[in-house]
Design a protein around this nucleic acid. Structure first.
Lengths: 310, 310
DNA sequence: TGATATTATGCTCATTTTGAGTATAAATAA
DNA sequence: TTATTTATACTCAAAATGAGCATAATATCA
């Protein structure tokens, strides 16, 4: 008597790596499709004892990457965001996976920030925010007054701080405002906007990718996941650059060093790497035996502000 | 060609409130069943445009509580943890909801910590950890050497800190070790253990509740969700007690006050509440207009330790 | 009524953490 | 050799944190 409708569960995985100074993810190009997609496939309970087993099967078959970290993100089930399924209702479970560049050589990797250009603040606040996004959102807000508080929080307006973790919230607002191509594709806000922001993806895959980036940025601050993006040995500089890639912000080098050294997560190997300047010590990740203390210092702050003492 | 098996999605919600000095959740008693359950029901895509709509329907029909905050927790799909579904594969989506005691009057509410007695540290470290749990886990570990690192992290052994957020990890280990009734029920580790820890629940509902508690403890530290458990006006003492309930730890009163006052999340109403001692100022939650800064100071610490300067 | 218990609140103090620099070292490139 | 580049050490002030003492304002009880 209960849910008689056929339900199909799709498992999609955003696989991230740090490579070539870019935060990249594995994107597949289907013949006849402009938009790319994540590796994905149906959850088949008869064959997959757990969803993670299903995920690993589709990843193995479609992209063959060694995954260093796997984490469930969210289950999306709202109508209209997922066209496909031949009449069946599709529920979409998104996963985040991390890979080391060394273990993830082949295949096509895309720059994640080309899908979310407004998220990369390493060279300062992106111009497009003030020239395109905020004005467009303002226009939209005149029709959608109730969304004002969400925009304020997500985009850090009117005195609110930009929170680098709100990746999904920002993407969702852009979708609702009809500023990303997926919105038009899903038949939402029929008006063809002048500028469609970032590259589109198939199905709900950009939404899943946004969730992945947000979750990773958040997780960095309390678990040592950053090391799942690093090779076996690395300089502190390389670690910092990867962290900056993920967070989308520049960090203070000396303070980053201090933070990481004190965290107990790394140990020196005694070897050094030579590149252009002074050779840097090579470190390695120090497994679990340390009390896992958070890298809370990675919290991005807009600089010191005098505390509001009236 | 894809997943031909019929899949049923169940939506279960752990609804929490703070009442009578207890952290309570809404538990339903089915006739003929010893174990209680959460409100739950199938996701029906034809009727439910989103899962949250489905959740709200089941909550309305089964318990009629006004929800102040709703948040998806996790989607569980592993075999053998969910007996039911008449041959269909059941995927279980868990939600956390918060309610104000005022809006959630009727019905049966259970003390959450009676299901997780090892999680309540307000009066210090629970005895059962050293008298029952850790010895039993040690015995189990002799057969399951690979789980040692997980036990160390989850239960804070061998120098690791107890992390109050690892509620699910602890429950899962107790399940795997056969120390909670659900393990025997699911046919895992047939040996009837002497002491079954905490009260059992139907299906995977204790697992969902564990996830809910862990998520809430974590979220407290970076979003002002605690106020969704508070009445309209409250003293700082009441706020602290609710926080302690959720975290399962005692906090330093003066420092808690300093933290909350500085956070900008509350404003004085000018009125006072009278009880036994000196009357306390009544505060109210100050909505969004403040930059949402984290209540990071809520991070529970085992006290100051001299930093390991060699 | 007055002493006592109870709770709230203000304040201090020593550490630690954090943000922001300056200074120096060790390599390569010109 | 000098300039350039990168790594690393150190300093300093501001802010946050952990711990506690002191005092205020009420109820309760003898």
């Amino acid at each position: 008597m209960s849910g008689t409708t056929d339900i199909l569960i799709d498992i999609s995985t955003a696989i991230l790596r740090a490579h070539d100074g870019m935060l990249q993810f594995r994107a597949l190009q289907d013949a006849g499709q402009t938009a790319k997609r994540l590796p994905f496939g149906p959850f088949m309970p008869d064959r997959h004892r757990t969803m993670e087993i299903g995920l690993r099967q589709w990843v193995r078959e479609q992209v063959g990457v060694d995954l260093a970290h796997v984490e469930q993100l969210y289950t999306f089930a709202d109508q209209g965001r997922y066209k496909s399924g031949e009449g069946r209702h599709v529920v979409s479970v998104g996963y985040l996976a991390l890979a080391r560049a060394e273990d993830a050589a082949g295949g096509a990797w895309d720059d994640l920030y080309s899908y979310f250009p407004w998220e990369d603040w390493r060279d300062g606040r992106p111009d497009m925010l003030d020239t395109i996004i905020l004005p467009a959102l303002d226009t939209w807000l005149t029709q959608n007054e109730e969304a004002r508080a969400r925009v304020r929080l997500a985009f850090g307006r009117d005195g609110a701080q930009w929170d680098e973790e709100f990746v999904l919230e920002r993407y969702e607002l852009l979708y609702e405002a009809g500023l990303v191509e997926e919105a038009a594709r899903d038949g939402r806000n029929g008006k063809p906007q002048t500028a469609m922001l970032g590259k589109a993806m198939q199905l709900d895959h950009r939404r899943i990718s946004a969730t992945a980036l947000g979750r990773l940025r958040s997780k960095l601050k309390y678990r040592p996941v950053i090391f799942d993006l690093m090779p076996d040995r690395f300089t502190l500089r390389a670690l910092q650059q990867t962290t900056e890639l993920v967070l989308g912000t520049a960090l203070h080098q000396q303070n980053f060093r201090r933070l990481v050294e004190k965290s107990g997560f790394v140990e020196a190997t005694g070897k050094t790497s030579r590149a252009r300047g002074r050779p840097a010590e090579l470190f390695r990740f120090r497994h679990g035996n340390r009390a896992d203390r958070p890298l809370a210092g990675l919290r991005v702050s807009g600089g010191r502000k005098p505390s509001t003492t009236k």
